[in-house]
Computed example of a mutant assay.
Amino acid sequence: MRRKEASCVPGVFEVTKVIILSREDFEKLSEDVSPEYPFLKDNREHMSADPGGLFRCLMARAEGEKECLLIAQDGDALYLGYGKDCRKVDLRSVPKEYIILEEPKAYQEHAVFYHRPRSVDDINGQNPMRPAPEQETSFQVEQETVLTDEQYRSFLKNGFMNDQPFLFGSRDKMWFDPGKLCWHCVLVRGENSKDGVLIETEGYNYARYAAFIPDCEKLRLRDVPIHYEYPAKAPQKQKRRYWENVR
């Protein structure tokens, strides 16, 4: 069944990953499988759909229960299937992940990149002499670099054109893919800042291209490595959104 259009399409399926939820979360997901759920965004590489052919899909089920949902995606199209007994599916060697269902969230996946900005005022729309480019571009964060709040404020004020040690060690994480028109970049933020800056250096040690991010919580940062630039420190306790299978 294709979501919203309620039309049936033929095909065979392959389960690429099993998502295990609490009973309450599974019931909630069953009521409306929104494509904006974070776990679907985070697992897009596990899904594909070829109507009439092969559907590579996630299997979502409640812990200890037999019924399941099969979820496949192709671009913006979401395909759903229902299974009465997941035990009838060969799941040997299929990876499992236990998660707590998060509310659907729209990620920011495009940004405006500026060439050779001097400060944050050149990229946040506050400088009338630096009008925004007409078109936003897609990006992918390859590393998150955390500065102290003082270091971050100094960087925003006058550090864009200066060589930065934290960029020198991350140059292999930054490039532009002309085929996909996608910036592969480093996110720089402060320990307690809500906003951040996406940076691509073109092999230099300064912010050759930069984009301002008002809210880092809207970025897809799951599994993105984090570097804490001394003296910034990793928090001792972090909120865990995903829980592990310890069996």
Results as ranks from 00 to 15, higher is better:
R44H: 11
G125S: 08
R2Q: 14
R118E: 13
G159D: 04
I71H: 08
C185M: 09
E244I: 06
C86K: 13
A111H: 00
E63K: 15
Y230W: 10
G203S: 07
L69K: 11
A210M: 08
R171V: 14
E67W: 01
L221G: 00
Y98N: 02
K239R: 05
W183L: 07
V89R: 12
G159W: 03
C8K: 06
M1E: 13
S154V: 10
F13R: 01
P35M: 11
S193M: 10
R220Y: 02
R241H: 09
Y82R: 14
C68D: 00
Y209L: 14
L29P: 02
L70D: 12
R241Y: 10
D163F: 12
S170R: 04
L167G: 03
Q151C: 12
R208A: 09
T148N: 09
Y242A: 08
R222C: 05
I20G: 01
D90A: 13
G11V: 01
L58C: 02
K237C: 05
G190N: 01
D172N: 12
A72T: 14
T201A: 05
L40Q: 13
D42C: 00
R130W: 07
Y230C: 04
D215H: 03
S22Y: 01
E14R: 14
W243D: 05
E202L: 15
H184W: 14
D25T: 13
K194Q: 13
V141D: 02
N162D: 14
V112E: 05
N245A: 08
K239I: 07
V146L: 04
Q143L: 06
L54F: 05
P117C: 05
E14D: 09
R118S: 09
G75M: 09
P104R: 00
K105S: 07
Y114S: 04
E244P: 00
E31C: 15
L58M: 08
H110D: 11
